[in-house]
């Protein structure tokens, strides 16, 4: 439990969308026009969440799990259908202008800068909106552009920048006014590895230097592993896991992932080999045509590997501590609601 007061808090938050459903066939279309069938879709259900200042929280989940909806409720874009969302101690949907100066939002799939003009001109507009004084503005732009390696691209029309450069500009814009809380909705989507790494480093540095609270949604586990202290896993609008990454790893500390690459002439995996796994308490977690990944307790790892050499023609083999991706897959697989650590 955090000793700090929360900078944002959700109490039993729910969000329900109404979606129109069309009947089948021509008659269904006409009937639907006269009498609409509406189906309610629960995007969020009973969400309880508290985030302390300076935390970096990773929000993950499958498509439609409710990540973006939660971010929209927390930033006051849309009201929650039930419960209460608070940011800076105020109702998130009724934030004052002073509150809004303390937050920022970056949406990976939707540019917030002006498409037809150079980014620097958009920044000047943001400067007026957030009332940043001129000297601080110039310094911030220069520093951040240097960190993100886009200094020479500031004067280029946004439409003429690459996806990675555009996202870096979005991030500069988001951090111009030195916000206390930044929400990033899939900021690395579609970016190359180098750009992703630059952005992650930037987020870590800003968090360390200014204690900026960061809420990050992503499908990329590397974003979460390299950036976040805390992980929140959403599924079907519920929180499936909320805790720190160290705690999550500790739950699986005694497990190892064994990845085996097979020679072309090796026997393939088949169901009759299940019995061979049971002897070691191992589980097959991923199967590809010439590659298998198993999970096994650390104490059985060595004999299990020896046995694998007996079973298959092994071309290559790697042993790792359980990667985060597997841990999350395990949580999703069991559907287990994990206590916050």
């Amino acid at each position: 439990m955090s000793i700090h007061p929360s900078i944002l808090e959700c109490r039993s938050v729910g969000k329900v969308y109404s979606a129109q459903v069309r009947g089948a066939g021509t008659l269904g279309i006409l009937r639907g026009f006269v009498r609409r069938q509406v189906r309610e879709h629960v995007a969020l259900a009973n969400i309880d969440l508290a985030v302390a200042p300076g935390e970096i929280v990773g929000l993950i989940g499958a498509n439609g799990a409710g990540k973006t909806t939660l971010v929209k409720c927390l930033t006051g874009i849309i009201p929650a259908s039930s419960g209460r969302c608070e940011l800076f101690g105020h109702d998130a949907f009724a934030l004052t202008r002073a509150d809004k100066r303390r937050l920022s939002l970056v949406m990976g799939q939707r540019s917030q800068l002006w498409w037809d003009i150079p980014a620097i001109d958009s920044f000047r507009l943001l400067r007026e909106i957030y009332q940043v004084d001129a000297a601080r503005f110039e310094r911030r732009v220069r520093e951040q552009a240097e960190r993100l390696d886009v200094t020479d691209r500031l004067q280029v029309q946004l439409r003429q920048l690459s996806l990675g450069e555009r996202m870096k500009m979005e991030i500069i814009g988001a951090f111009l006014h030195d916000p206390e809380v930044v929400f990033l909705d899939e900021p690395t989507i579609g970016l190359d590895l180098l750009s992703q790494e630059t952005i992650r480093t930037f987020l870590r540095e800003v968090n360390r230097e200014r204690r900026t609270t960061v809420i990050l949604t992503s499908h990329d586990m590397a974003d979460i592993e390299e950036t976040c202290d805390r992980l929140v896993i959403l599924e079907a609008g519920r929180i499936l896991f909320d805790g720190d990454l160290v705690g999550l790893r500790r739950r699986f500390v005694g497990r190892r992932a064994v990845e085996v690459h097979l020679e072309a002439n090796s026997r393939p995996w088949s169901a009759e080999l299940d019995g061979e796994l049971e002897r070691f308490g191992a589980v097959l977690v991923r199967e590809a045509p010439r590659a298998l990944t198993f999970e096994v307790d650390a104490e059985h790892c060595q004999p299990f590997i020896q046995h694998l050499f007996d079973l298959f023609q092994v071309r290559d083999l790697a042993v790792e501590r359980q990667p985060l991706e597997n841990l999350i897959r395990e949580i999703f697989r069991t559907g287990e609601l994990v206590e916050a650590s």
């Binding site: 069309r22 021509t26 279309i29 639907g32 026009f33 609409r36």
Partner: peptide, 15 residues
């Protein structure tokens, strides 16, 4: 034409 009809009537009040 049926597809266009569905699009046109998606928003009843507007239609």
């Amino acid at each position: 034409a049926a597809y266009e009809w569905r699009k046109a009537t998606a928003f009843r009040a507007g239609f």
